[in-house]
Amino acid sequence: MTTRTETFGKVADLIEPFNKKGIVLAEASTFAGDLEWDSLTVMDFVAAVEDEFDIIITMNMQAEIETVGQLVDAVEKLKA
């Protein structure tokens, strides 16, 4: 298993508690559209991702991330 696949799996696990609609996650799933998250949910979720990978995702970066795939790419880059 590649590290990216592992990262996607971990991110998907972190999304689950906030996945109120029970959507099937894909690379292109969007946080605002598909998951219908508001800014408070985003805050809690980002904190969980940061703590899981021991990274910082600044609010500036968050503004550019719309899909699960983009988040996984960002995490991969920040971990390196």
Partner: peptide, 27 residues
């Protein structure tokens, strides 16, 4: 004030000393 400037912006959980410490340590 954050949006008006050009700095990188990092949030911590409300009134959490531990959360602040962790985030500062990663910068």
């Amino acid at each position: 004030g954050c949006w008006l400037g050009n700095a990188e912006v990092v949030r911590f959980r409300h009134n959490s000393v531990e959360d602040l410490d962790k985030r500062l340590g990663r910068l």
